[in-house]
Amino acid sequence: MPIRTFLITLTATVLLLLGGCSTPVEPPGEASGEQQTAPTGAGGRVVTLPTPRQRLVFTARQEWALWGRGVWDAATDTYEWPAATAPGREHVPDFSSRVLLYWQALDNGAGLQAEEAQYGDGSLIPWSAVFISFLVKAAGIGAERFPGSALHWHYIKHIHDAPDPQGFEALDAATTPPAVGDLICAPRDATALRVWSFAQLADPDSRGGYHCDVVVEIGNGTLGAIGGNVRDAVTWTRVRLREGGLLEPSPQRPWIVVLRNHLP
């Protein structure tokens, strides 16, 4: 082919391509007004979202795993954890930062200063109730169902005095077998010396120190419950069960309350 003819042909081809590029092609449906629909069955997965009760349990288990999966036996007062992991401790920066997250969830993050979670000597203010409040909020359970607090007694007393058939109800641990998703509570320290029965919760003088855990597993005569600030960590507590699935009190945990979870 002569060079002149080749150059004319090449120029015509380039102009044709440029003309094509200068005319954008409208995406289907935009100019015509057609509705676009998301494809189905193209490799996507259908997700069944967990219920609030399930989220409470799942989140507790996730936090426990994050802290190293430590297990404390309430009957023998012994502690163990997987040999392959080191247990988390609140004084380690990674984990004290996690404790602050629990506090911020309780406070809605509204101007919380880190020092507010500490005593003057630098030690952390007890955070077990804050942890429970964090779990409840993370599960999507509103304050109208469960009023979060830095004190276990606040929400125990509120639920005791105003049981909610759609939320939580306080029941006597001596006669009520707990279920997965419930909370189990016991007085502690000096409070345990003067409050030893569920009936005493009707008295305002029952105010004091308590501890609560979320029940995450039941079977083989024992119960597994997860709580915060147990051995300075988020810890799985192993609890013995009596006949009928009732809690076996121990000196460390004289259980008196089951906070029944009526949520789905």
Rank of each mutant, 00 (worst) to 15 (best):
I3L: 12
I3T: 06
T5G: 07
T5M: 06
L7G: 09
T11P: 01
T11K: 14
T13M: 10
T13G: 12
T13R: 10
L15K: 14
L18V: 15
G19W: 09
C21Q: 13
P27M: 09
A31M: 10
S32E: 04
Q36Y: 03
A38P: 00
T40D: 04
G41Q: 08
A42D: 08
T48R: 12
Q54P: 08
R55Q: 14
L56G: 07
F58K: 01
T59Q: 15
T59D: 15
T59E: 15
A60I: 07
W64E: 01
A65P: 00
G70Y: 02
D73C: 03
D77I: 09
Y79P: 05
E80R: 15
A83W: 13
A83F: 08
A84M: 00
R89T: 00
E90D: 12
H91S: 06
R98D: 14
V99N: 04
W103E: 10
Q104E: 15
D107V: 11
G111C: 12
E116H: 06
Y119R: 03
G120S: 15
D121L: 00
G122W: 01
P126G: 08
W127V: 11
S128C: 15
A129G: 05
F131W: 04
I132R: 01
L135A: 09
A138E: 15
A138W: 01
H152E: 11
W153S: 08
Y155D: 09
K157M: 05
H158T: 11
I159L: 13
H160F: 13
H160V: 07
P163L: 13
D164A: 08
D164Q: 03
P165N: 04
Q166C: 00
Q166T: 08
G167F: 03
F168M: 07
A170L: 03
A173L: 11
T175E: 01
T176G: 02
V180M: 07
D182C: 08
L193C: 04
R194H: 14
W196D: 14
S197W: 11
S197G: 12
A199Y: 06
L201A: 08
L201T: 14
S206T: 04
S206Y: 05
G209Y: 13
D213T: 10
V216W: 04
G219T: 11
N220R: 14
N220V: 12
N220A: 15
G221N: 12
L223Q: 07
L223T: 05
G224N: 01
G224M: 02
G228E: 10
V230I: 15
V234N: 01
V234Q: 07
V234K: 07
V239H: 09
V239S: 09
L241S: 03
L241W: 04
L241D: 04
L241R: 01
R242M: 12
E243A: 11
E243G: 09
G244I: 03
L246H: 09
L247I: 07
E248A: 13
Q252A: 14
R253M: 05
V257T: 11
V258G: 02
R260P: 00
N261L: 03
N261W: 06
N261D: 08
L263Q: 05
L263A: 04
P264K: 13
